[in-house]
Nucleic acid binder design. Structure first.
Ligand code: DCP
Length: 1059
DNA sequence: TGACATGGCCAG
DNA sequence: CATCGCTGGCCATGTCA
């Protein structure tokens, strides 16, 4: 990792802070002077090619930075002044020297260097290829022109006044930017400033060339953005002019801190380019993840787990197992990690950390506070709270720092180095800033209090962040001891007697127990009508009672916990399976705003790529994909309080077997699209998307026996070994079963196949209208009939109508209550008395708790009609719904087959009834028919009776897909394979597959499904070029493609919807 | 009875 | 302007053979 000394990057601001006010102004002026000259030159040469050259802007705005980058860092690297200082003076070596002192000293040296070197900087460094369409370029030019106009104005005014000038000295050297609404307004201020010698900045730009900012108040975001400027009230201007001298700005300071003096120029690091505002835009994922703390936390954790598991396994080979007489578990954790770590570089005065409330946040009323220091906590702020609320708790005094993920990572590494250096029996990473250690070995020889104190001291010296530690005979007690010791403390209860332990536990709040969150706490408190629930209370609850309330495991565990008992193991090496990953997923619940299916699918492809990369990184393959969608709750506002947030949502999920262990992005994304269709959440309602891969297998791991889906089509007599695709598990089960050719001759040639298809196509066939769309519209709905329907069916239908946009949300019938509606009853103290009862900002009720309500569990047992209804596939807003035509044997199988079985049964029943009724029209009302549960076994025979084509006895879309996939992967060779003759599809198999697809296409007009399958096959062979068998596969796919084309040509008019 | 699908909760 | 609400594991419950 980055092994630069801590102070290195803090020196740019220190450089500025080392200058006196006038020095600074001089410096800036010198720079801007130079900029102006450059600009003039540039402009002359620019006349032909104006607006295209960025260079003057670069010079204009990056000079201070250039000083920093070119002079300071170069010097440092070349063993110059900076290097000297940094090399001889690390914090760890001289802990008595504060970081500030160090950086000040560095800065003084640097500033000397800078003033010598800056003018010599070769300009061409800044001549970069101009970027097309760079708006900032435009604004910067604008600014320049405005400043020129200002000068002209002053000159004109001076002439007009005949030498009786205003005092130009008042704001001489000041470069002033005015933010937001002010009194006097910006126009007047503008004039006042330039007339009295100041420079007015119309745009702040990104490089911090302003010396002062005028504002009457600031949004939280601005507060952060401007925290390194001198932010003053407008009165400073007015009263300075009145007194005809520059009054001290600090008397008019708007932000109540001394940050204004600290680091102008640092603001450059705040520069943010938003390439993607939401998930519709390319690059969104990357940008989002780069700024998401939770993403970083999760990633770090997974990486640390993997790293330390690996290490533990290697060590355990050489180190003999040992049993220790007394188990000692150490739980160690930084105090308010993000806040402490960000403070290192961002707080000008380190001592503020102990006296002022400080937090890390992106800024904005509804931005999360990732971590706040203990001063803020005392005032009532908490991690995870919304900034608005936290500010309120801290009476507006909360100082906001930025995230610095690199810094956290750097500090974490030092932390883990210190931990490993103690050679614990085992080490289990809990988080980037937190770990569990089995120190039984150390406890045998050392006093643990002393050991802990040593360790903490070492970590402090290395990182300048404080840690706390708890030690106990088990994980539970270690955690509680740690909690008790915070901040900056330690506690060992290793030697407590049983009684002492109980006494220690008695007052502990159950919320402090692992596994007890909002929900469990609430259940217990509600049940016992208590406003506070301690371990002493918990211990008095009958174990059986706990089990009844919370379930077998949870109940029993809590009962044990209440007595201080816990057998959790952290011995990573002794049962590695327990600590290896069982799933790999990607979740995005922010910025999800889509209008069309295409946008969603594009995003799914991006997610699949990321997922694939994660699998690759973990050296794993998976064979099951689960999609979880967050859908805006019916009565949640379209725009939740948190910008681009998810707001209140309902969740649905669905999983599919891939049929093979894979990590191919193509397979993952096509499966994801398919799942999305099945879940049927309209794009506009989507608020969150998650994809999870499970049934993982490691590279080189052979046990994959659970996977009964692999049915390679190849004949056993010519054993085919699956291709070694980099994204397909190279160790699948060898072929066992083979395809049972159905209606296929033993020997056929590709020509035969084509001929058969042709024959098939030329055969006159009955008119089937399966995919015809009867324009359903709201007028066709007989609301009288509707209202007679059972409630459940009404709910189902309503959901469906809405999703098709047939009815408005304000329906003409009684709005069915979804669980979410009921859950609103949950009393949630919401601070923004608005409509949003979201328990969002911590301090109210947590979101999750509202999202799922008790009602859900006591709700109708009819298998969640909402979900059933909404899981009809292929029904998006922009995808027109396919038609269920029940008076015909050609029910749209594409839809039917994906339905939950309960619904499917209903419809099949209905179909039977329809046949007799000979109804020609199908409206939703017909669902009112008495619904009879069909035993599941009968389904198969129904479908058989309905002539649904099947492949290897599989008629379900996903299974068929899996079959094809497995078939192909078994029939493509490795690069090195010399047996090229034995690859490619077997002709018998080809015939069967072709026949199946033909039937699906011509008999059932299931164009959607056929396209999808052929496309899937294409994906499967896509990256297998040049491998043995590829050409043969390619030919087969082409043939199938051709078949599709011919179908489309002859039936084009019938096919309305293809996607 | 156990395997599986789905969904909830929790932690950092 | 805002804001970056991830991710993995365990548990509960219901369904099915
Ligand atoms: N809801 C949360 C909880 C934690 N974190 C991040 C910021 C924290 O600094 C870090 C570690 O989490 P901890 O729970 O250990 O909290 P702190 O370290 O901030 O405080 P402490 O451990 O002293 O209670 O994880 C976060 O971003 N959001």
């Amino acid at each position: 990792m980055d092994d630069k000394p801590i102070v290195a990057r803090s020196s740019s601001d220190a450089f500025w802070s080392s200058l006196g006010d006038s020095e600074l102004v001089d410096f800036v002026n010198a720079l801007s002077q130079r900029k102006r000259e450059d600009n003039d030159e540039e402009q002359k040469g620019q006349e032909k090619d104006e607006e295209k050259n960025d260079a003057e802007d670069e010079i204009d705005l990056t000079l201070p930075d250039e000083v920093w980058n070119n002079s300071f860092t170069e010097n440092k690297n070349m063993g110059g002044v900076g290097d000297d200082i940094l090399g001889s003076l690390t914090l760890a070596q001289k802990p008595n020297v504060s970081p500030e002192e160090v950086s000040q000293e560095v800065a003084r040296k640097v500033s000397q260097e800078a003033s010598q070197q800056a003018p010599d900087d070769p300009e061409d460094l800044n001549h970069e290829e101009p970027e097309f369409g760079d708006m900032s370029h435009y604004f910067k030019n604008k600014r320049f022109m405005q400043q020129k106009a200002d000068e002209d104005y002053v000159e004109w005014l001076s002439k007009r006044n005949g030498g009786k000038n205003p005092n130009l000295a008042i704001f001489e050297g000041c470069i002033i930017y005015v933010n937001g609404r002010t009194d006097p307004d910006i126009e007047q201020l503008h004039k006042m400033i330039i007339v009295h010698g100041g420079t007015f900045l119309a745009f702040l730009g990104s490089k911090g060339s302003a010396t002062h900012i005028i504002a009457s108040n600031l949004t939280p975001r601005k507060r952060i953005e401007f925290r390194n400027y001198k932010v003053v009230k407008p009165e400073w201007i007015v009263e300075s002019i009145r007194e005809n001298r520059r009054l001290p700005w600090s008397d008019y300071q708007l932000i109540d801190n001394d940050y204004g003096q600290a680091k102008i120029g640092f603001a450059r690091e705040n520069e943010r380019t938003d390439v993607a505002l939401n998930a519709k835009h390319p690059g969104f994922l990357e940008q989002f993840f780069s700024r998401s703390r939770l993403h970083h936390l999760s990633t770090w954790k997974a990486d640390l787990r993997a790293e330390h598991l690996q290490r533990a396994l290697e060590e355990s080979k050489t180190r003999p197992k040992r049993v220790y007489s007394k188990r000692a578990i150490l739980h160690i954790d930084f105090d308010c990690f993000f806040a402490a770590a960000s403070s290192l570089k961002q707080l000008p005065n380190a001592e503020d950390f102990r006296s002022k409330p400080i937090c890390v946040t992106h800024g904005g009323a509804h931005a999360d506070v990732a971590s706040c220091n203990y001063v803020a906590r005392k005032m009532g702020a908490k991690n995870g709270m919304w900034l608005e609320k936290a500010q309120q708790m801290c009476s507006g005094q909360l100082i906001c720092l930025e995230y610095d993920f690199d810094e956290y990572e750097r500090i974490s590494k030092l932390f883990y180095d210190c931990l490993l250096a103690t050679k614990p029996h085992s080490l289990l990473p809990v988080s980037v800033d937190e770990a569990l250690l089995d120190v039984s070995n150390i406890a045998e020889e050392h006093d643990l209090e002393e050991f802990m104190s040593d360790l903490r001291q070492k970590i402090w010296l290395a990182t300048h962040c404080t840690v706390s530690a708890g030690c106990a005979p088990n994980v539970l007690l270690a955690k509680l001891a740690l909690r008790n010791s915070k901040p900056d403390g330690q506690l060992s209860i290793l030697n407590y007697s049983e009684d002492e332990i109980l006494k220690f536990l008695n007052p502990v709040d159950i919320r402090d127990l692992p596994g007890v969150g909002y929900s469990v706490q609430k259940k217990l408190m509600d049940e016992f009508n208590a406003s506070k629930f301690t371990l002493a209370n918990l211990r008095n609850v009958d174990r059986q009672k706990l089990v009844d309330m919370l379930g077998v495991k949870t109940g029993a565990t809590l009962a044990e916990y209440s007595r201080g008992l816990d057998s959790t193991s952290i011995d990573i090496a002794s049962n590695p399976d327990e600590f290896t990953r069982k799933s790999i997923s990607i979740d995005v619940n922010w910025g999800i705003r889509f209008d069309t299916i295409v946008e969603v699918e594009t995003f799914l492809v991006e997610c699949a790529k990321v997922l694939s990369e994660r699998l690759l990184k973990a050296k794993m393959f998976g064979s099951q994909l689960t999609m979880k969608l967050a859908k805006r709750s019916e009565n949640a506002p379209i725009a939740p309080p948190k910008h681009m947030g998810m707001g209140m949502c309902d969740f649905v999920s669905k999983s599919a077997r891939l049929g093979i262990s894979s990590r191919e992005p193509g397979i993952l994304s096509s499966e994801a699209k398919s799942l999305y269709r099945i879940l049927g959440v309209p794009p506009a309602e989507l608020r969150g998307i998650a994809l999870q891969v499970t049934r993982l297998v490691s590279e080189g791991d052979n046990r994959e026996n659970q996977n009964q889906m692999r049915l390679p089509f190849q004949k056993a007599k010519e054993p085919q070994f699956p291709g070694l695709s980099s994204d397909l598990n190279p160790n699948p089960i060898p072929a066992k079963r083979q395809l049972e050719p159905r209606n296929a001759p033993k020997k056929v040639t590709p020509a035969d196949i084509k001929k058969r298809i042709k024959d098939f196509m030329s055969k006159p066939r009955p008119r089937t209208t399966a995919i015809e769309e009867p324009d359903l519209n709201v007028d066709q709905i007989n609301w009288d009939v509707f209202n007679e329907l059972p409630k459940e069916i009404q709910i189902e239908l309503q959901t469906e109508f809405e999703r098709r946009g047939l009815v408005a949300k304000s329906t003409p019938f009684s709005t069915p209550k979804k669980r979410k509606v009921q859950s609103r009853k949950t009393p949630s103290p919401s601070k923004d008395g608005g409509q949003q009862q979201l328990p969002e900002s911590l301090g109210g009720t947590p979101r999750k708790a509202v999202l799922e309500s008790p009602l859900k569990k006591c709700g109708s047992p009819s298998k969640s009609p909402f979900k059933a209804a909404s899981s009809t596939p292929n029904r998006g807003k922009s995808i027109s719904p396919e038609k269920l035509r029940l008076n015909d044997t050609t029910i749209d199988m594409a839809i039917l087959q994906e339905l939950p079985s309960s619904i499917r049964n209903d419809i099949v029943n209905q179909a039977e009834a329809e046949k007799e009724m000979k109804t020609t029209e199908m409206t939703p009302m017909q669902l009112k028919e008495e619904l009879v549960e069909l035993p599941r076994q009968k389904m198969q025979s129904y479908f058989r009776a309905l002539n649904i084509p099947s492949l290897q006895n599989q008629w379900q879309f996903s299974k068929v897909k899996s079959l094809l996939q497995a078939w192909i992967s078994a029939g493509i060779g490795d690069f090195d394979s010399s047996l090229s003759g034995s690859y490619g599809p077997l002709q018998e198999d080809s015939v069967v597959v072709s026949a199946y697809l033909s039937e699906l296409l011509w008999e059932h007009n299931d164009i959607t499904r056929v396209i999808s399958l052929v496309e899937h096959m294409e994906i499967c062979i896509l990256d297998k070029k040049n491998r043995p068998g590829y050409d043969e596969w390619k030919e087969l796919v082409s043939t199938l493609d051709q078949m599709l084309k011919e179908y489309l040509i002859s039936n084009g008019s019938k096919v309305k919807y293809i996607f």
